[in-house]
Nucleic acid binder design. Sequence first.
DNA 1: TTCATATAAAGTGTATACACGATACCATCG
DNA 2: CGATGGTATCGTGTATACACTTTATATGAA
Lengths: 215, 215
Amino acid sequence: MDALRQRIIDGEFQAGESLNQVTIAREYAISRIPLREAMRQLEAEGLLLFQPGKGAVVSGLSMSEIGEVIDLRAMIEPDILGKAIPRLTTADLEQAKRILDDYETAFKKNEVATWGEYNWRFHSTLCAPSGCSIAMGVLQSLHHLNERYAKVQISVTHWQERAAHEHREILAACRKRDRQKSTRLLQDHILSAGQSLIALLEQQRHSNEKTAKAK
Amino acid sequence: MDALRQRIIDGEFQAGESLNQVTIAREYAISRIPLREAMRQLEAEGLLLFQPGKGAVVSGLSMSEIGEVIDLRAMIEPDILGKAIPRLTTADLEQAKRILDDYETAFKKNEVATWGEYNWRFHSTLCAPSGCSIAMGVLQSLHHLNERYAKVQISVTHWQERAAHEHREILAACRKRDRQKSTRLLQDHILSAGQSLIALLEQQRHSNEKTAKAK
DNA sequence: TTCATATAAAGTGTATACACGATACCATCG
DNA sequence: CGATGGTATCGTGTATACACTTTATATGAA
């Protein structure tokens, strides 16, 4: 299921495109039964939508829905980080640092496909010690929804650099156990990334409309 | 799927109990295939957990997880209500009032099974005009998780009366389009209900431990 | 009796099969 | 030529079938 989810997030299937069960099942060398079960779970996560007689269709988020995902993350994640901070161990902080290092290495090598993965690993490494399993599940779901669209950001170099800088700042505040500062930085980080994402998507949509008109 | 979800919420199946696919499929006169698909969705909602070789097991929330669900609701729902308030129509407000009336009628008639339904309908009627579809989905999921445990509250008469009073107050604040007041009242409502729920569950757990010792 | 082991029963996980509905293609009619 | 209807193809939705796993039951030894 994770593999299929990643393929949807990676944009291999366009929004609105319906997934052929026979083909995909064959790709994983399984029958349609377990595939459909996985698809039903992805449906519950909001990535797919079953249309009667048409199977699973990749669901697309409207601009306002993308905004919602960001707002929810901006609301929940800093709160969870706040709960995690007193519980953060040195090992947690070291791992977060390692993830950032690896992320920057991957960035220099232009391994764009791994960006989303590193991003989530950084955020979740800092939040996980909160012990909030339900909230972490919600967050991960939101992150998956976000990631599909965030792919357009990975190519924008200066945004990458800004994100990297903000990550370092957040980590530094966590290291100091500065709850106020780290949660505020995290919230700003999510919201500013969200705003730049929405601006990019608006821009993209406009240029698409232009080319559509050109036809 | 909704019917099965309700049966789990209603407590027909105990936490930890595994659901017999053959039996349940027969009850709905379907085969195990669509049943399993429904179960997978309920798994993604956090109500079930598939254990390899053992099928779907009803998942139980720990006390801290129940607390998390309440905290998340207390964080998200007032925010959504705030966004909904400028968009609330007279029809929305009337419908909310009608739900409260029906709820109180049902309360007087002791129709306990309908409580959770009325509660969600009231909350969602006020929040839905926000147009936040993603957040509403998250909220509904959280509400389902909550509802299973909230069932212990329905028998506590004075809590019911307090909730009814708080609902009326929230509705009055919404009618006045008082964003500040209504969101604050809603947050207090969720948190105080949550606290009383946790207190009840703690109490229940203690008495269970005593009877367990008595054996 | 109690524990261990063998055997039977029940249940899950999934491949296969088939019926139904959607879609594409083509021929026919206006 | 475009529109309409018919047929063939493809794909979904789910019932059935079967292999494998877990659980219950029975049997025998300590």
